Computed example of a mutant assay.
Amino acid sequence: MTSVNTAIIPVAGLGTRFLPVTSSIPKVMLPIIELPAIHLIIQEIVDSDIQKLVLVIGNDADTIKQYFNPTESLKKILKSQNKEYLIDKIFELNQKIEIRYVTQKHPRGLGHAILQAKNLTQNEPVAVLLPDDIISTTDEPITKLMINEFHRIQQSVIAIRKVPDDLISSLGIIRHNSKDFHEKLFEITELIEKPSIKDAPSNLAVTGRYIIKPEIFDILENTQPGALQEIQLTDALSSLLQHQKIYGYKFPGEHFDIGTPLGLIKANIFYASQKSEFKKELMNWLKNQNSIY
C-alpha cells in the first residue's frame, strides 16, 4: 500500500483582502483565538499521521519561521515568569513533524507553488492543504479521512462540498459520474473553474484539501501558464484526469473560508464556542447582539 508521508502547504499568497495588516503579517499568521491559522492546519497534518511538511513560502516569510522557532530571549522571559506553557503547543508540534521550506520567488499560481516542493516528495503521493480553508470534523481530521479513502481506492482524492448557487461562479465545480462510488465519494469526470450557474454541472465545489498521486508533478512541469502567466493546479488535475481516476470526497463537518475577513470572523466565533472558558459568555453576548439588531 502506498503511504502519504508528506504534506504541502502553499503560504506565499499576498493576502490582499486583509491589507493593510498583511503588509507586515503573513495572512496565515492571523489568529483563530490564540493560534495562527497555520498552526491549526499543521495540527491537522500531525493528527493525520503525516511525518513531513513542506511549506512553500514567499520571499518575506521570517514571521512564519520565527513562530516555529521562538527566540531564546522569549524563552528566558517566559521561564523567569513560569509561563513556558504559553508556547508549549509550538514545541509539541515541532517534535511531531519535520518542517522544511521552499521559496516561490514569484507568485505564479497555485500549481507553480506546489511544483516547488517536487524534490522533497520522493515520488510519493502527497497531501496538499490550502490554508484559506479551515475544516472542522467531529471525528478524525479531514486529511486523515481522505487518506483512508486514498488507501482504499488508490486514486487521487479531492475534498468537495455542496455550495449555494450564489457561490458557484467563484469556485471550481466538479462534473461527476452519475453512478456514485458511495454516498461520500464521487468519480470526477471534469473540473470546471468558476462556471456560470447556468453552465455548472453540479453544486459540488473543490475545497482546499487534496491527496494527489505523484504524477501530478510531471504534469505541472509541462502545464502551460494561463491567465496572468500563472500555472494552475486545476489545469494540471484536468490533465491527470485524462490518465487516472480522481474522486471527490464530500466531507462531513464545518468549513470556513478564512481567506476573507468574514470567514475569519466566523471561524473565530466557531472555535471560541468550542472552548468551555469562552462558550457561555460568548453565547450570551451573541444573543444580546441579536436582540439589539
Rank of each mutant, 00 (worst) to 15 (best):
M29G: 03
M29R: 06
L30D: 10
L30E: 08
L30G: 09
L30R: 07
L30H: 11
P31M: 03
L35G: 00
A37W: 02
I38V: 00
I38S: 01
H39K: 03
H39M: 04
H39D: 06
I41V: 05
I42T: 02
E44S: 09
V46F: 02
D47C: 10
D49E: 05
I50C: 01
Q51I: 05
L53M: 01
L53D: 02
L53W: 01
V54T: 02
V54P: 03
L55S: 02
V56W: 00
V56E: 00
V56H: 04
I57F: 05
G58P: 05
N59H: 08
N59F: 07
N59K: 05
N59A: 06
A61M: 03
A61F: 13
D62S: 08
T63E: 15
T63S: 10
I64L: 01
I64S: 00
K65I: 14
K65A: 14
Y67I: 04
N69G: 00
N69E: 00
N69D: 02
P70S: 03
P70D: 00
T71K: 12
T71Q: 12
T71H: 12
S73C: 09
L74D: 08
K75N: 01
K76F: 14
K76A: 14
K76I: 15
K76V: 15
K76H: 12
I77V: 09
I77C: 05
L78Y: 03
L78Q: 08
K79V: 14
S80H: 13
S80Q: 11
Q81I: 14
Q81E: 14
N82L: 11
N82W: 06
K83E: 12
K83C: 07
E84T: 14
E84W: 11
Y85E: 11
Y85H: 12
Y85F: 10
L86V: 08
L86D: 11
I87L: 06
I87K: 05
I87C: 07
I87F: 05
D88W: 04
K89N: 15
I90R: 00
I90H: 06
F91H: 06
F91I: 04
F91W: 07
F91V: 05
E92F: 07
L93A: 07
L93R: 03
N94H: 15
Q95W: 04
Q95N: 14
I97H: 00
I97G: 01
E98R: 04
E98S: 07
R100N: 15
R100V: 15
V102A: 02
Q104I: 15
Q104C: 14
Q104E: 10
Q104W: 07
K105I: 13
H106Q: 09
H106S: 10
P107V: 13
P107F: 14
G109K: 12
L110Y: 14
L110F: 12
G111D: 04
H112E: 13
A113E: 12
A113N: 13
I114Y: 07
I114S: 08
I114E: 05
I114V: 15
A117S: 13
A117D: 12
K118L: 03
K118W: 03
K118E: 15
L120G: 09
L120Q: 06
L120H: 10
T121V: 08
Q122I: 08
Q122D: 14
N123P: 04
N123Q: 09
N123V: 03
E124Y: 03
P125T: 13
P125E: 09
V126A: 13
V126E: 07
V126L: 12
A127E: 05
V128K: 10
V128H: 11
V128P: 11
V128F: 07
V128I: 15
L129C: 13
L130P: 04
P131W: 05
P131E: 06
